[in-house]
Design a binder for these strands. Structure first.
Length: 959
RNA sequence: GCGGAUGUGGCGUAAUUGGUAGCCGCGCCAGACUUAGGAUCUGGUGCCGAAAGGCGUGGGGGUUCGAGUCCCUUCAUCCGCACCA
């Protein structure tokens, strides 16, 4: 019998399905092992060969762990909410659920063909109400909690109310929005609505006016990680900035923990670095600059200032007193408080709330014009014109708290509203952006840091700022002569003494905007009463997505859900019309897999305590600033409220690389329908055109097929070289338009799933991106056929002997056991495949068909090629699946050697080899080498200066 | 600009972690079997050289008996962040 992969693979896939072979139980004596793949969004295009790469790696690992005696859970599901299905719905009117269901079926079919050991009984689909009930449930919990910095965890809002009733909001260290201080009495005198407004500043899921990334083409707001270079990641549409009332998640409360816990998890250094940068911690100081008296007089009115002033956020309780006095303070954040003496002006972001109020009356029109212009500039324009310096003087002055100097306050869009306080003290001498601004508007530049060993110089002569983080302070009063590092500490101490500021930490991380003005997402379990949002009762979950007549915003610009009939509670209160973003459902799906059938809870405590966390998570690194940070936050919150037992969900994470396409090109001579072969193309004026890789073999074009490929090529002419048309090639992204897509279905039809699995692993390390080389797959196919022939003779009869193996055969087997076992543990699947090839080549050379060798080998291979090994396992006389047998034990005994073939080198160059006993002494080895006839040529009669002998490594003769 | 990663045959890669550079596969070359070969099998294949031998891990320098591996420096490519104070 030949290796009939089609029949074998169908047979075993059916067997696994019927016998629920990979169903994991939540109770077991075995140790648990949870292997997870990032679940896919089921797109209409189906899978290409790049998608399963990570799934194959994790599947091999899952199967390996089963053989090693673990109770393995390896679930799969679908991230079903996504823009493509919705865009399609807008165009065609087809409900996104219909499209999604169809795509899921297609994905499922493709995945099944590859022979994954997924436990489909645990399948989670994010758009299924049975699942998203728990996404909504978690949202309500977020709404009902606030972040207490004292205990450094989330606590119920009910406790917060208790605290307010006792002490107002004093003595409370919470992560919150801008809240004025109030007493217990004041709290008690507030109306229900006022209380809700106050609480909203504390909730972990909160509604607030926020500057958002608004994408008009998609008609929705996007999260920061969904915007790339001013365009939407999905679809590539322009994105604008807009102030809108939005739900947000207070992920910033967790910034420090998200940063610190990175040290505890096994992720690649590069991915951790991406997260560190995204969180963007910087240490520095908050400094309060008083408005100069003259400026206060020019400002609108003292009353207005007072209001403004009392809303200023202070994080230091001592400062609160000062702040509520009648003085306008502008808070800036700086990482370099040491350079305070060099602050020669201040800059506010155009969106800064004080800009218009402090502007001098005569400057107000120009300031207002500038602010309008800057606010309406698109993200894209801002980015494209980073070098362009713009700004406007407000006419107001601020007082430097350290030296009493009055400095002009400017407004400029190089200061971002979203970072720090949206206001900076400009130190042009030591910050390149401030320097450029100062030069452009002719503002003074003062040197306050000096390079060690240099003199103070005239800043007028400077061509750039001195941005160094090291140096000696000058022109800085009490800090003169200090090192920068010490001066920072001294400056902070000083401003704290003066109550003009305090040391603090800032994060680049922003709260996650959680509303989308779209249809295809989880509805918020929220209704409005008196204009304030309230959560639905848990008993009313899930709040199911209603039907709508059109998947578009209403005529008045409300989100699509506003079209739904009776979109209210039973009592008639209106329900929220926004939906949740894509990352909502994927932030906690891995928890649901632990207990997906649970009707009464997200998951049971027992299930969570059994599975704990994910031992191995495999997915792409493009989720570094999105899913992987939201999910960590989500999990940390659930940890705080005692729902999950592990603070970090993904203990070990592997980023699989991408598989790039290998495109082929033909070269059309311009203005003709003639195509010239690759090596002759330089003689002509040509245009390179993508050609379908299906009609190219080994870079040789099938010219007949090419003529048939497209009507316009029917009469194409060719200029050949050596009678063939050679195509050019390039490595590019795999995409339909480049005609370089390899579908796994075609390859499985031609070579089988086992070959595809092994070839994808053979390409190179999983983490690396690499081009797909269609030709190479045949090497792996040959390998499996060769493997088959170890068990079957020339006549196709199963022929395995019970003869006792030779030592040489045992050595081959046990070397493979050791090598492959350790390779899998290290996720080095490419070297494992190559070790299999070596092993099979050697056994074929020995014509070994002995059961004692082949049976363990078959188990060894089963994680990689599950179908062929199941079949052979059965042929070997076993019943049932190979999936739960034991991984072969390595026995040192069989690989022990008596001699070692020493490379002998002269001055580090290997010249010949010499076989010596393993226990040889240095003196014996030296004598043997020097006596060898080959040595005479290299010694040329001279005695060696030295002989280095490293046991079982090398002998080096120095001459 | 900042951060991260990667540079080894024509191509994908390997190298027990400082010890024989190029394993395994593709491609290529030669041969066998065949009516045929885009099937199968066998052998060869880093570069230069007739050979002896020399040269070789992006470039330059260093440490070492010995460097793809460690150190310094430089270049290139890819990815992430980017007016982040």
């Amino acid at each position: 019998m030949d290796y009939n992969f089609r029949e074998i693979e169908k047979k075993w896939q059916q067997y696994w399905r019927e016998n629920k072979t990979f169903k994991a139980r939540n109770v077991s004596e075995k140790p648990k092992y949870y292997v997870l793949d990032m679940f896919p969004y089921p797109s209409g295009a189906g899978l290409h060969v790049g998608h399963p790469l990570g799934y194959i790696a994790s599947d091999i690992f899952a199967r390996f762990k089963r053989l090693k005696g673990f109770n393995v859970m390896h679930p799969m599901g679908f991230d079903a909410y996504g823009l493509p299905a919705e865009q399609y719905a807008i165009q065609t009117g087809t409900h996104p659920a219909v499209t999604t269901e169809k795509n899921i079926a297609r994905y499922r079919e493709q995945l099944d063909q590859i022979g994954f050991s997924f436990d489909w009984s645990r399948e989670v689909v994010t758009s299924d109400p049975f699942y998203y009930k728990w996404t909504q449930w978690t949202f309500i919990r977020l709404f009902e909690h606030w972040y207490d910095k004292t205990s450094d965890k989330a606590r119920p809002v009910s406790e917060l109310i208790g605290a307010f009733e006792k002490h107002g909001n004093d003595n409370l260290d919470a992560v919150c929005g801008e809240v004025s201080p109030f007493t217990a009495a004041e709290w008690k005198s507030m109306t229900e609505k006022e209380r809700q407004q106050v609480l909203m500043h504390y909730r972990l899921a909160y509604l607030a006016d926020t500057w958002v990334n608004w994408c008009p083409a998609l008609g929705t707001v996007l999260a920061n990680d969904e915007v790339k270079d001013g365009f939407s990641e999905r679809g590539g549409h322009p994105v604008e900035r807009k102030l809108m009332k939005q739900w947000s998640l207070r992920i910033t409360a967790y910034a420090q923990r998200l940063l610190d816990r990175l040290d505890r998890i096994e992720w690649s250094e590069s991915l951790k670095e991406v997260q560190r940068n995204w969180i963007g911690r910087s240490e520095g100081a908050a400094v309060f600059f008083r408005l100069a008296v003259s400026s206060q007089q020019s400002a609108v009115s003292r009353d207005e200032l007072k209001t403004q002033n009392s809303e200023l956020k202070t994080q230091n309780s001592e400062l609160k007193t000062q702040n509520s006095e009648l003085k306008t303070l502008i808070e800036v954040f700086t990482t370099r408080p040491d350079t305070l003496f060099g602050a020669t002006f201040m800059v506010l972001a155009p969106e800064h709330e004080l800009v218009m109020q402090i502007a001098a009356p005569e400057r107000r029109p120009r300031v207002s014009e500038y602010v309008e212009w800057a606010k309406n500039r698109s993200e894209r324009d801002r980015m494209a014109e980073v070098k362009r310096i713009t700004g406007e003087f407000t006419g107001a002055y601020a007082v430097n708290p350290l030296n009493g100097q009055e400095i002009p306050i400017w407004v400029a869009d190089y200061v971002l509203a979203g970072y720090g306080t949206g206001a900076i003290m400009a130190v042009p001498g030591h910050d390149s952006r401030d320097f450029a601004f100062a030069r452009f508007f002719d503002l003074p530049i003062v040197q306050v840091v000096m390079k060690p060993g240099e003199e103070i110089s005239d800043t007028h002569q400077w061509s750039e700022s001195y941005d160094a983080k090291e140096g000696i302070m000058v022109n800085s009063g009490f800090m003169n002569g200090m090192q920068v590092k010490d001066a920072i500490t001294a400056a902070i101490r000083k401003i704290e003494e003066m109550k003009a500021g305090f040391g603090t930490v800032n994060y680049r991380l922003r709260d996650a905007i959680f509303s989308r003005q779209r249809y295809w997402g989880e509805p918020f379990p929220i209704y409005y009463k008196d204009g304030m949002p309230y959560p639905l009762d848990d008993s009313q979950l899930p709040l199911e997505l209603p039907g709508v007549d059109k998947y578009l915003p209403t005529e008045t610009g409300e989100p699509p859900l506003a079209r739904a009939k009776n979109w209210t509670t039973k009592e008639g209160y209106p329900l929220e019309t926004n939906t949740m973003p894509g990352f909502a459902g994927s932030s906690g799906y891995y928890l649901r897999y632990m207990d997906p059938w649970n009707k009464d809870a997200y998951f049971s405590k027992e299930a969570n305590e059994y599975w704990q966390d994910i031992d191995l998570y495999v997915g792409g690194d493009e989720h570094g600033t999105g899913h992987l940070i939201y999910a960590r936050f989500w999990n940390m919150f659930l940890y705080d409220i005692g729902l999950v037992c592990c603070e970090e969900p993904f203990r070990k994470l592997i980023n699989q690389g991408k598989i790039q396409g290998r495109s082929n090109f033909v070269y059309r001579i311009n203005g003709t329908n003639t195509f010239v072969s690759f090596n002759l193309k330089d003689q002509y004026d040509t245009t390179a055109l993508h050609v379908d890789i299906e009609i190219v073999d080994n870079d040789i074009l099938d010219t007949e097929a090419f003529r048939k490929w497209r009507p316009d090529y029917e009469n194409a002419g060719f200029i050949l070289e050596d009678g063939r048309y050679v195509c050019g090639w390039e490595i590019e992204k795999m995409s339909k338009s480049k005609h370089n897509v390899q579908s796994p279905d075609d390859l499985i039809a031609k070579y089988g799933a086992d070959t595809l699995r092994m070839y994808e692993m053979f390409l190179g390390p999983v983490e690396l991106s690499k081009p797909w080389d269609t030709k190479g797959i045949e090497g792996v196919f040959r390998f499996l056929k060769k493997y088959w022939r170890l068990f079957y003779d020339e006549n196709g009869n199963f022929n395995v002997s019970t003869v006792t193996p030779f030592r040489s055969e045992l050595k081959i087997l046990h070397n493979a056991i050791r090598k492959i076992g350790s390779d899998i543990e290290r996720f080095s699947f490419n070297t494992a495949v190559s070790a299999f090839m070596i092993c099979i080549n050697e056994l074929t050379d020995l014509k070994c068909n002995k059961r004692e060798i082949l049976e363990p080998l078959n188990i060894l291979l089963s994680p990689f090629a599950p179908h062929i090994t199941e079949e052979i396992w059965q042929q070997l006389g076993h019943s049932g699946t190979i999936s739960y047998v034991s991984f072969p034990e390595f026995n040192e005994e069989f690989v022990r050697e008596d001699t070692f073939n020493y490379p002998v080198s002269f001055n580090g160059k290997m010249r010949f080899q010499m076989e010596l006993p393993v226990g040889v002494t240095a003196a014996e080895a030296e004598a043997a080498v020097l006596a060898a006839s080959e040595s005479q040529k290299w010694l040329a009669g001279n005695p060696p200066k030295k002989v280095v002998f490293v046991p079982k490594k090398i002998i080096n003769v120095v001459i």
